[in-house]
Design a protein around this nucleic acid. Structure first.
Lengths: 327, 327
DNA sequence: TTGAAAGCGATACCAA
DNA sequence: TTGGTATCGCTTTCAA
């Protein structure tokens, strides 16, 4: 049995009776031409010895690792899991690989992770964390930020505000004169975009601002916020800032034996797979995760690292929870 | 502003007026002692120049990348997302980083991914895919397989069969004389472990085998299987082989206006976070994901790569869907 | 305590 | 068309 790791290009060269340079030419299809016959001998040697080029050495020599570093708050969160999945898919198709790390919402950890990725010479860093301005100054690794603007980096951002506005507008269209809001804790000064969209729709319809309940960006956080919202002055409709929280809100509603959408209509932001199979299925404002993932990788691979800010329209998906759908 | 990438150890040496060896001694705290004063000069130089050791060069020289390669079928699947999260957490705590890839359930892709990881000289491969025996022979990279036995590798496996048996036994304990089964498609000859556990419990209680419906390991697959199960001879209880499918089954039940657990009791295998917030909350057999992740990383880091097979007991978590819980 | 230098494995230029 | 070789940045042995 051929052992892979220890077999070097020199072993191959020796076996094939050529110089190591020729092996390179064959493996990389260049930069020099190789006589067909020699080429065959080399390929044969590679096969027999089970040679695999050492990507580490290659990276050192070439100065590029063909690797993306991805930082998310929590890859256990379906939204980020789906994002990571989409990015890995695109990256893989282009010969890149992704180093995935979790910052856990802690700016200090985030800084550490960035440093780690830089030390490992990733080709680029994809930042999908919602924390404050990261330290990028000491680095010349390309950075693309998702979900929020970051100075000194390209940012690809869903239209949070407009998406939220459209969603709330839809709820209002169902005839609800009050629309509550379940919102994530405001840590960044950026996430309130969704809250602003909610306000926009209300104002535009001449409606008063419904009750607001805040909680962490988790199912549990949504559950607790939902309970608080019910205890107070229950609104006939609620806009929730994330699917995860919405799932928690649904639970609170079910426990209170309230009908959705009959007693309370619900619509949330994100559009993860989980939202489609909650009960009732959630109407959502869907983030174009795949498109963003695709563009992110394309920009990075093609070296379009000019600093700019690009926004992505969201999509309103109507299911049962808002009063639409087959129910 | 200091540019990080191009700053090498030689730049630091020059700036500090020492040899590059000394910089190494300082950075690595060894293998030679350095005079305190010299040390200070070097640290100062590092600070001023913004030097970051090139992990690529280090890996080449040391022969280890301090990187784990993780292969899962689909990191968008919450079960694998949670597993990946747990592994990343443990790995990170020990200075490792994880390269995460998706095989998408395709053995060919899986082979490609393994080759890619080997080429990149990962320190070890963690295989969490359910496909057939992978090609590991050409490699001397340590491999740990999760979820199934793999010849030539250490395997850490939850007690699928016994866990399923305990779960079904619990359903039977609720007085149900028939327990249906929603099972994943049998692709591997290994996953039916859960099906065997279901049979064990039935046999042990002297009950006939209830109806079986099979579908993909997805929410949609569970939904479709659930519908089929209802059309036929509806059982009063169902054991579902994964949370994801169970969520689909719940949807089918809701659409049929059946009460859970009143009309049909449900219990599933996995215990992902999603199961806790479905409606009603799912009773589950929980896989000890964190323990497995922790042991996996510990074994790899400590070099316990002896080939063995370790099993992990599961945990029965009772919630509302089986008839327990506060409802 | 510090420096010089030999590699780790691959790339690609310059000669031949 | 092919070979020799400098180089990428770092670790570590051996001398000084």
């Amino acid at each position: 049995m051929a052992k892979a790791s220890p077999v070097t290009r020199n072993d191959v060269a020796e076996y094939a009776g050529v110089s190591s340079a020729v092996v390179s030419y064959v493996v990389n299809d260049g930069p020099r031409r190789v006589a067909p016959e020699t080429r065959e001998r080399v390929l044969e040697a590679i096969r027999v010895l089970g040679y695999r080029p050492n990507a580490t050495a290659r990276a050192l020599r070439m100065g590029t690792t063909q690797t993306f570093g991805l930082i998310v708050p929590d890859s256990g969160n379906p939204l980020y899991a789906e994002l990571a999945r989409a990015i890995e898919k695109e990256a893989s198709a282009r010969g890149y690989v992704v180093l995935q790390t979790n910052a856990g919402g802690d700016p200090t950890v985030e800084r550490t992770k960035i440093a780690e990725l830089v030390a490992r010479r990733v080709s680029a860093i994809i930042l999908a964390t919602p924390t404050e301005e990261p330290e990028l100054s000491e680095t010349d690794v390309p950075v693309i930020a998702l979900n929020r603007p970051v100075t000194g980096a390209t940012s690809l951002i869903p239209e949070y505000r407009e998406g939220a506005r459209i969603g709330v507008e839809h709820l209002i269209g169902h005839g609800h004169e009050r629309v509550g809001l379940v919102m994530g804790l405001d840590l960044t000064g950026w996430r309130p975009e969704r809250e602003l969209g909610w306000r926009d729709a209300l104002e535009q319809a001449g409606l008063p601002e419904g009750p607001i309940a805040r909680g962490t960006f988790t199912r549990q956080g949504g559950y607790e916020a939902g309970r608080r919202l019910l205890k107070a002055d229950r609104p006939p409709a609620v806009f929730v800032s994330s699917d995860l929280q919405a799932v928690g809100v649904l639970r609170a509603l079910h426990e209170a034996r309230l009908d959705v959408p009959g007693d309370v209509a619900v619509l949330s932001f994100d559009g993860t797979a989980e939202s489609e199979f909650s009960w009732p299925p959630l109407s959502v404002i869907r983030q174009p995760i795949e498109r963003i993932a695709k563009d992110t990788v394309a920009r990075l691979v093609d070296g379009q690292t000019g600093i700019e800010q690009v926004t992505y329209p969201t999509e309103l998906i109507l299911r049962r929870s808002c009063g639409c759908g087959e129910g």
